[in-house]
Each structure stands twice: as C-alpha cells, then as structure tokens.
Design a protein around this nucleic acid. Structure first.
Length: 271
DNA sequence: CGAGCAACCTGCATGC
DNA sequence: TGCATGCAGGTTGCTC
C-alpha cells in the first residue's frame, strides 16, 4: 500500500482534519509494532495541539509543541480519520482521539510500521538522520545521483531503492522508473553513463509525480473510502505484469528477483 | 565502506 | 475443507 505517493496522499487526507486540533486521549491497543510504540506517547500528546503534519521520505511527522510523533506505515499500514466512537477492528493498533470528536486511527495488519515519539530537545530522530534527499526536491539531480553511483558494484535497482541515496523509491516505482528510463535493473550502478542518469532522475520524478496526482484523485473521498484506490494499476507498465507484453514493443516482460524483491522489465527496451 | 540477506508480522492465493 | 507453501507496496541491522 504505502509507497511515497500513498504516504503523501495520506498526509494530505489526514492533515486538514488533525491540524490545529487538540489531542484528548491516546489509545494503544497493540504496542508491539516494528518497534514498541513509545511509552511516553500519551503523556506527551494529550492536551497538546497538532500544529502540522509533514513528511520525510515515507515517514509522517505530526508536530506538537514539545515534540514530534513519527509514523511509518511499513508494508500494510494505513491512517484514517474516523468518528471516535467507531469500534476498533483486529488491527487497529493506535487511536489519537481529538477534541472535535474525531480520531486518527492507525491500522497495520503486518505490524511492520511504527509509531514513535521524538522529544523536541532531542532534535532530529535517528531514523531520519541518514536519509538521502527527497526525490522531488532540487537536491535530487543528475550530478548528485551520478556522483553517488561511482564505484558502486551493486545493481541499479537496489541503488535507487537505497534510502541513503534517495528516499521514497519503493519496489513498484523502482521497476517503473527503470522501464521509463530504458535501463535494465541488472546493470551495475557504477557502470551507467551520466546521460542515462539524467534520464533516470527525470523518470523517477515523473513516475512519482504522476502517482501523487492520481492519489490526489482519491483524496476527495479519503475519509469515506476505506478501500484501495486502484487508480494507478492501469498506468503501471511493468510491475505486476511479468510474462505480459511490453506496452512499447510487445516483447514478453521478464520477471526476476533482485534482493528478494519482484523485478519486472522488458528485455528488449531496457539495457 | 559496500553488498547481500535474515528478520520483523499477517493475510491471501495456490496447490495438494 | 484443511494444511503447507510462497508471496506481498519496507527498512534495519547483521554478516562477510
């Protein structure tokens, strides 16, 4: 569910409902997530106002006076605004009850996500400390990516999925961006020309921007819709289409595994 | 330092 | 129908 565009969509959907609202109660039903839910979460949030909801990579940051609640959705997490009285399901692990009668509900069947508290005086959270640039920022450009790639023997797909290099490029969009750029996922990162990196940077941006726009479409009924958007499925060129025809040249798409992740590419268009 | 991989968990599709 | 297997949109932290 949550690639960067999904996280951004979540942020946009949740933010207007929670921003400038006061937290009256924090309910933790399951504290064992990827890391234990910060025990001080309730103590620090109750009575305080969420002043802003921002995003760094796939982390959502809920700012308050004395610190930041950091949420990662992992593989299966989601956030919704609900009425505070709505009964909790099996995987509804954390609720932030708001003064206006709504609640922010964190749901995560696989529990790969996290809900953490970072005190203001502790500065930037260790998890955010070594993250690379945002893919949609100016900092992420060809000279940067090319410079980082030199001397790298690892595969280009793993390289662009490395959050120390650039944040927010998950498995779906790594596959899609490499297809758009015409680069084989099996190429060594250090072996690709500057010109092709220019193309790759543009492709990563394009694929993420388009997906965020598509996410924006589902944004309107964000609080009403509980189901999957399904909007981007149609625009995927390779992901989930192994064995199918390349949309450009009709060659059957190959499916392999790179670092245990499903990798699909066109053996004819991508080199 | 870089590269590769196990680990964290549940749900779902598939095959016997 | 039941059970075993493999796979899933992420990321850390361990080995080598």
């Amino acid at each position: 569910m949550p690639e960067l565009p999904e996280v951004e969509t979540t942020r946009c959907g949740v933010s207007p409902h929670i921003k400038n609202n006061r937290v009256t109660e924090v309910i933790v039903r399951q504290k064992k997530l990827r890391w234990e839910v910060s025990p001080s979460l309730s103590k620090n949030l109750v009575g305080n106002i969420i002043s802003d909801v921002s995003r760094r990579g796939k982390y959502l940051l809920f700012e308050s006076m004395n610190g930041t609640m950091l949420i990662h959705l992992g593989m299966s997490g989601s956030l919704r605004i609900i009425e505070a009285t709505e009964p909790a399901g099996k995987h509804d692990h954390v609720d932030l009850i708001l003064e206006n009668g709504n609640a922010l509900r964190y749901t995560d069947p696989r529990r790969f996500g996290c809900v953490l508290w970072q005190k203001k005086e502790e500065g930037i959270h260790p998890l955010l400390l070594n993250l690379g640039p945002e893919p949609l920022s100016e900092e992420f450009d060809c000279p940067y990516l090319y410079r980082k790639s030199r001397g790298r023997a690892g595969l280009i797909k793993s390289f662009i999925m490395d959050s120390k290099i650039v944040v927010g490029v998950g498995n779906i969009y790594a596959n899609e961006a490499l297809f758009l750029a015409g680069i084989s996922p099996k190429r060594a990162a250090g072996n690709i020309s500057k010109a092709r990196y220019e193309n790759l940077v543009l492709s990563i941006r394009k694929v993420l921007e388009r997906a965020i726009e598509a996410g924006g479409t589902t944004l309107r009924d964000f609080t009403n819709s509980s189901g999957e958007p399904g909007y981007f499925k149609q625009s995927l060129n390779v992901y989930g289409r192994g064995g199918g025809e390349c949309r450009i040249c009709k060659t059957p798409l190959k499916e392999i595994r790179i670092s245990q992740r499903s990798t699909v590419y066109c053996p004819s268009c991508q080199h």
